[in-house]
Design a protein around this nucleic acid. Structure first.
Length: 436
RNA sequence: GGAGAGGUGGCCGAGUGGUUGAAGGCAGCUGCCUGCUAAGCAGUUGUAGGGUAACCCCCUACCGAGGGUUCGAAUCCCUCCCUCUCCGCCA
């Protein structure tokens, strides 16, 4: 949510900068609503002042046993008028608030202007793309042949866009979660959290998923709660409605959660394999910082996510999203994309953003500056560190051997009982039985 | 799911209709005093919105949330949320 005062004073500039996101936001209603609101406030507060003064006078008169009937009669009318105006004010403020909640964040000045993903810019690349002496296979083929991925049975249990991991496949997923959490807590200074996987609507509004993007979420029928689409939601809302001490900042959290997404509107896109699922695992990084340090912290956070790929030896590139491709709440976003030889393309594995005070204003997260003074909104940041399922894909495709086995990256072996490669085992695979 | 208790300022804790934004205590801040420390004395200390050039000042709102009664509500009534205790159930 943007600051109403800032909008009032910089309306034209904000319009121009939001226009670079595409899907032109119509801010024309704003001025009228804002002026109407302040006009009602002025009137109703004057009346309340009068009521407070006179009510005290009535109390004094009654104590002395004198009549206050005239004043009471007058105040009955004043109270009626106040009630009417309060009603109008509430309507006006609700309209204003609802409107403000639908306006996206203003892109940071360092974000390149552009319409869509084709105008994102590559910032840096890391790692050598492997030269295969054979035709590299996709992860689905590798995984199913090894008996560690089973999409057929996942479809039976839950439907399309779900997966079933088996044996070493499940172990690999679990090892990656442990590896990433340990890396971020012991080497990068994050505190590990294990939050609820179900949240209320206030939390979803706080981080910006609601009210605009309800169709992307799984809502629990009859309860009004939602499955988390990312750990960003519960972890950012940890400090909702709080005033933090500046000495605590930057506050850095890492959390593993499963993520649940409807993926509405992605029909036909990446229907096969682990790339796009209704449920996937992710280790998330979240920071609360002062406004002065948030961009510095964004660079660090992105580096922390990159370290995971460096440790695993998987080639990647970092791109900065252009204005037209950024998410609703972000002021600046770097995507990290891994190289997938089986598909011959880069695929997003992490998205690291600075939201500045956009989420903090929605969720009312503030800090008390050193040496006192008025509370200020913190800046919030987050990034995947990393998406686990896509990391599995990257490992299978980058570390596959010609005979269909997969070498386990060295950094990961201590989390897999010293295992060095994934091979097909008798127990690792059970062919589909006959249907009854 | 059943029965009961409770939600007040940074914290503890008074307050059942009329200068109560809220006693008292703790913590914090500012003076004074005192070899140091500790103690003592006096004062001060919330958030948001509106007015305003203004973080001075004035006004309004806020005692879990939302309604209601009243000239006037932290105080009375209704609904909801949350926490705690006991019972049941349960990983």
């Amino acid at each position: 949510m943007l600051d109403l005062k800032y909008l009032r004073e910089n309306l034209e500039d904000v319009k121009r900068r939001l226009a670079t996101r595409g899907g032109v936001a119509d801010l024309s209603r704003l001025k009228g609503l804002d002026e109407k609101r302040r006009q009602i406030i002025t009137e109703v507060e004057a009346l309340k002042n009068r009521r407070n003064t006179v009510s005290q006078e009535i109390g004094r008169l009654k104590k002395r046993g004198e009549s206050a009937d005239d004043l009471i009669k007058e105040m009955q009318e004043v109270s009626q008028r106040i009630k009417t105006l309060d009603g109008e004010l509430e309507g006006c403020e609700r309209e204003l608030k609802e409107f403000l909640l639908t306006i996206p964040n203003i892109p940071h000045s360092s974000v390149p202007e552009g319409r869509d993903a084709t105008e994102n810019r590559v910032v840096r690349k890391w790692g050598e793309i492997r030269n295969f002496t054979f035709n590299p296979r996709e992860h689905t083929e590798i995984g199913e042949a090894l008996g560690i991925l089973d999409f057929k049975r996942a479809g039976k249990i839950a439907g399309a866009r779900f997966s079933l991991l088996r044996g070493v496949g499940a172990l690999l997923e679990r090892a990656l979660i442990n590896f990433m959490l340990e890396l971020h807590t012991t080497r990068h200074g994050y505190t590990e959290l294990l939050p609820p996987f179900i949240v209320n609507s206030e939390s979803m509004i706080g981080t910006g998923q609601l009210p605009k993007f309800e169709e992307d979420l799984f809502k629990i029928e009859g309860w009004g709660h939602y499955l988390v689409p990312t750990a960003e939601v519960p972890v950012t809302n940890v400090h909702r409605d709080e005033i933090l001490d500046e000495s605590l900042l930057p506050l850095c959290y890492t959390a593993y959660t499963p993520c649940f997404r409807k993926e509405a509107g992605s029909y036909g896109k990446e229907v096969k394999g682990l790339i796009r699922q209704h449920q996937f695992n992710k280790v998330e990084l979240v920071k609360f910082t002062t406004p002065e340090t948030s961009y510095e912290e964004l660079e660090k956070l992105t580096n922390d996510a990159e370290t995971v790929l460096k440790e695993l030896g998987i080639p990647y590139r970092v791109v900065i999203l252009c204005t037209g491709d950024m998410g609703f709440s972000a002021a600046k976003t770097y995507d990290i994309e891994v190289w997938l030889p089986g598909q011959g393309r880069y695929v997003e594995i992490s998205s690291c953003s600075n939201f500045e005070d956009f989420q903090a204003r929605r969720a009312n997260i503030r800090y008390r500056p050193k040496g006192g003074g008025k509370p200020r909104f913190v800046h919030t940041l987050n990034g995947s560190g990393l998406a686990i399922g896509r990391t599995v894909v990257a490992i299978l495709e980058n570390y596959q051997t010609e005979n269909g086995e997969v070498v386990i990256p060295e950094a990961l072996r201590q989390y897999m009982g010293g295992m060095e490669r994934i091979v097909r085992e008798g127990a690792g695979s059970v062919s589909m039985g006959q249907r009854q």
